[in-house]
Design a protein around this nucleic acid. Structure first.
Lengths: 197, 197
DNA sequence: CGTTGCATGTAAGGTGTTACATGATTAC
DNA sequence: GTAATCATGTAACACCTTACATGCAACG
């Protein structure tokens, strides 16, 4: 239907996606929900970004707004997806090329620079990353349990299952890295000083 | 040492990190190398971005440039990290807070919206993502083999090992998702139409 | 009565991308 | 000779974040 010369940024479709589950939600709601869902496999936009996207989606007719309580300004403004919005979202899923997945992991970047950081620092970093991974596993597990209880099988549940597996692998990969590095005598690791010598 | 009111963007440290291995490299070299290393666990900046960062790093005194062949303009310009650059990098690793890891996966975003996409579309998407995962595993394996052969144990090798495990887990998670979804009768999945009914 | 949470939005600025411009060298 | 690769860089723009501004409601 809508011939868009340039499609929305992915954030736009993510917000539209959150609304595609059928509920009327405010910008504030959307932020909270994305922190508990999108965050694990995509990313959670800043609240100001969400407000901006909602404005754009409204202008495109993909969502409609309503004030709560009715007629009062500056209180709670909830959004609902329109049929055009669902069409646009379906069109994006169907026709837009799927961008390659990206992992941005600063901890790994620092491990990779171990010849600058030193073995002790790297080991500490990895240990703390394992902690972080455990927390993430707990968070995802929690989301998954709730989703399964209240909704039964769902696409969201499948994705959470995926995330749980992935987070677990992450933890194990760090644990193995730590074991390997621990057992390696310091001189076995090529340091910058050696490399430049 | 260097009191920076605002630190570099992470890209800057990534470029500095590529140079911290001690070789003299051009912007073009850096791009190619980052495509074969950083890409798997951080991300590979656009070539124009790399040129920009090199300029900034040079102004800060973290790298020095040299023309090749000597004295000829507009040919090949290689960069070398300075001691100040190593200090800045070490300072970043030591003192800057480690940002939470981010996974940006458009395929999962679409699976999550399966109630809009439909089961068939999701299954196709997952299958193609499995293919992508296999290619990634092959790429990382290749990098890892070369690194291990030529360098012996190294931090870069440890990170590649990590990436290989992670990529494998990714493949398995998609395979399991596909099996689960395949065995699920279509009506068991809550669709948008049902949700709104 | 002060902090936290709810709630919305604007403005400025940083980061990074695509598109463009340029030109040499190498391979077919 | 012409296409691909090597090689560098600028300009315009999209995207997103932080900081700021505002105000109500609930909790202690």
């Amino acid at each position: 239907m809508g011939e868009r010369t340039r499609p929305l940024p992915t954030t736009g479709y993510a917000v539209l996606g959150l609304l595609s589950f059928g509920e009327e939600l405010s910008g504030y709601d959307l932020k909270k929900w994305s922190d508990h869902s999108l965050r694990f496999f995509y990313w959670s936009p800043a609240i100001s970004n969400i407000y901006g996207e909602l404005k754009r989606l409204q202008q495109l007719g993909y969502v409609v707004a309503r004030e709560l309580p009715e007629g009062s300004p500056r209180n709670r403004r909830v959004y609902r997806i329109t049929d055009e919005g669902v069409d646009a979202l379906a069109g994006w899923i169907e026709h837009e090329p799927v961008e390659a997945p990206v992992l941005k992991d600063q901890a790994l970047l620092r491990v990779w620079l171990g010849h600058v950081a030193g073995k002790d620092r790297v080991l500490a970093l990895v240990a703390s990353e394992e902690e972080q991974a455990r927390r993430m596993i707990a968070d995802v597990s929690h989301s998954l349990e709730r989703a399964t209880e209240t909704m039964g099988p769902s696409y969201a549940g499948l994705v959470e299952q995926w995330c749980l597996r992935y987070a677990t692998a992450r933890l194990e990969a760090f644990a193995e890295l730590r074991r390997t590095l621990s057992s390696l005598p310091e001189p076995a690791i090529r340091t910058r000083r050696e490399a430049l010598a």
